[in-house]
Amino acid sequence: MTGNSLDRWFESPALRRLAAALVVINGFFPALWVLLTSLKSEAELVQQPISYLPQNPSLANYARAFADQPLLSYLGNSFIVAGLATLGSLLVATGAAYAIARLNLRHRQLVLTAIVASSMFPLVTLLVPIFETMRVLGLLNTYTALVLPYVVLNLPVCTLVLVSFFQSIPRDLENAALIDGCTRIGALVKVVLPLAAPGLFTAGILAFVNAWDEFLLALSLNASAGMRTVPVGITLYQGEFAFPWPIISAALVVAIVPVAVLIALFQERVVGGLTQGGLKG
Rank of each mutant, 00 (worst) to 15 (best):
M1S: 14
D7M: 00
D7K: 14
R8K: 12
E11M: 11
E11I: 01
L22F: 15
P30C: 11
E42F: 07
A43Q: 11
S51T: 05
Q55S: 11
L59Q: 11
L59H: 04
Y62V: 03
A65P: 11
P70Y: 02
S73A: 09
N77A: 09
A82E: 09
L87I: 10
L87W: 01
G88T: 10
G88A: 05
G88L: 08
V92R: 03
A99I: 12
R102C: 04
H107W: 07
V111R: 09
A114Y: 10
S119A: 14
M120K: 01
E132D: 14
T133E: 13
M134V: 09
V136D: 14
L139D: 12
L140F: 01
N141M: 09
N141F: 00
T142M: 13
Y143L: 06
A145N: 11
A145D: 07
V152R: 02
V152M: 07
V157L: 12
V157S: 12
C158W: 09
F166Y: 13
Q167I: 00
S168N: 07
I169N: 15
P170S: 14
G181H: 10
K190Q: 13
V191N: 03
L193T: 15
L193A: 15
G199A: 12
L200F: 11
A203R: 02
G204V: 00
G204T: 08
L206E: 03
W212E: 07
D213C: 06
D213I: 09
A225S: 12
M227R: 14
T235S: 14
Y237S: 02
G239C: 01
G239A: 05
G239L: 02
E240L: 14
P244Y: 01
P244Q: 00
S249N: 06
L252T: 11
V254D: 03
P258E: 11
P258V: 01
P258G: 02
L262S: 01
A264Y: 03
E268G: 11
V271P: 00
G273D: 04
L279T: 04
K280L: 02
K280A: 13
G281K: 03
